[in-house]
Design a protein around this nucleic acid. Structure first.
Lengths: 293, 293
DNA sequence: TGTTTGTCTTTAATCGATAAAAGTCTTTAT
DNA sequence: ATAAAGACTTTTATCGATTAAAGACAAACA
């Protein structure tokens, strides 16, 4: 078999979403730009939408004929890119099948279980290996090192180094830097979140990731920034797996964020660092609680 | 086509080397252990060696019949693993073809030029991407970001953070830790090197890599350790490409190493950090001189 | 001049096949 | 009792083929 057309399907769905929000499809080129795909893909979407009676050509542009309903969409499971699919499926697999530290991971087994080719699995594992919890020696199989205490320790150590450094660098960013409006918005969002946290506490993980990425990006260092991918992945699944005290944890963390942000805005380096250190410590402790297996 | 037998050929050569040093091949199992390969591979080596009249079975073991000469070896170019081959070939390609920052890298083009499959190139590029100088957006081609000033800056920043941290951690390692004998040996080697540097200055790059890896390993952090791979790769090719003032540079660097080592052995954290900072600064400056393109 | 489209070429994503190498029993030899 | 070898199964490394998507160029249009 050959390349899948998941991108087309995903973009088709995205296009339906935009039409529902009242977007215009003025041209195929324009749609391609909006969706971030090539004109070939955009054309295919438009042609199909027309054939399905959802869109009609009208005076140089296109017009929605009716609102899309559930069945007009491609189903979610054929829409994720292979890589994204593999990431979540693999992480769930580790949890579900209770893969233990030290366990060997076979490319062909994963491929069969997840119904993708061995090459895709292979490439995925290579990409994943930079996260430090799987590893291989050439010629032998992959080994799952596990999310154990050592992993959490090492992650925390580097994270602290990087984010402390980030604080130092961002405090001295010039007034007109785009960082300052971003961090102000971040403060507002956190306050909003805390006001409604009873209903919205599940939204915290995303906010958390965005906050830490904002700090890291301010350091303008590709290595630090790419380490943030590791953090994001680990905490993403940590949040999905560990639901104990979720509401309280998120609330505490949001307050800690606010303390950091306020110190940053006041250009108080020392207080920002203290607040950050305390926050990362909390994060480390909760992470460790959930990885003790 | 299928999997290559480069491992067999490499191990065959390695076996010839060991025979020349007077090693015994007492059994196929033993040879497999010595060479770090499976018994299948070891058996294939022994069988071929016997067929080629280099080895003969004798009383349960095997005996070398004659000394191996150049033509008994597989030639170097069929012996490197695809990955190692790709690494050096690709880096040389960048230099030779004067690939400029921003240039696109096509999988198929590299594959054709280096005579490997597109999948191999693909996997190699994925592995290489963690070094931060090539990059891709899904669906588009790879982009060479180049070894420019920004790259050197960012590399230096993280390196300084990590190695400074390493110093802090290793100074407090217990007396009986295996680090202490290693660092003493390292001091001896450096002094030996300086005594004979007129003839041996070309050996410095290896010494340099081993020195910095020793520091980093002492911090027992997989993320820091893996960053050392980045350093090693960059400086390896930096050394190969930039021959200006080579002798003096290496000599200076070796002296700087000694200053660091001596401070470490005296458990003088502050002096070690000062010496390290100075050394990394020198390294950064010379790196930048050679990457200004 | 800048944007859209049609047409065509190039490139990447994904797959399954094949041979080398690793791994696993069981048997044999010391 | 080990350790080696034999016989066999499993797994990885490597390849080339195939189709989706990107990209390039010229013509048409505003």
């Amino acid at each position: 078999m050959a390349r899948s057309d998941k991108l087309y399907k995903r973009s088709y769905n995205a296009c339906l979403d935009r039409l529902a929000l009242g977007w215009e499809v003025s041209s195929i080129s324009g749609l391609a730009r909006d969706l971030g795909v090539s004109r070939n893909t955009a054309r295919r979407i438009v042609v199909t939408l027309c054939a399905n009676g959802l869109l009609v050509e009208q005076g140089g542009g296109f017009k929605a004929l009716r609102n899309a309903i559930g069945t007009d969409y491609f189903s979610d499971d054929v829409v994720l890119s292979t890589e994204d699919f593999l990431e979540s499926a693999f992480m769930e697999l580790i949890l579900r099948e209770d893969i233990r530290p030290g366990a060997r991971i076979r490319e062909a087994v994963i491929a069969r279980q997840l119904d993708v080719s061995t090459s895709s699995v292979r490439e995925f594992l290579i990409k994943l290996s930079r996260f430090g919890f799987i590893r291989k020696e050439p010629g032998k199989s992959w080994v799952f090192d596990g999310f154990n205490r050592a992993y959490a320790d090492e992650l925390h150590e580097v994270r602290l180094l990087f984010e402390m450094r980030a604080i130092e660098k961002l405090i001295v960013l010039p007034e007109e830097d785009r960082f300052w409006p971003s961090i102000s918005r971040m403060l507002t969002e956190h306050r909003e979140f805390l006001k409604h946290y009873e209903e919205r506490y599940l939204e915290f993980p995303k906010l958390d990731t965005r906050f830490h990425r904002l700090l890291n990006q301010a350091s303008r260092n590709r290595f630090m920034d790419s380490f943030q991918d590791v953090i994001a992945l680990i905490f993403h699944y940590h949040y999905r797996w560990n639901k104990v005290d979720e509401k309280e944890r998120n609330c505490t963390a949001a307050r800690e964020h606010i303390r950091i942000i306020e110190a940053i805005i006041l250009r108080n380096t020392q207080e920002a660092k203290n607040a950050l250190e305390a926050h990362l410590k909390t994060a480390e402790v909760t992470l460790k609680k959930s990885v003790e297996w």
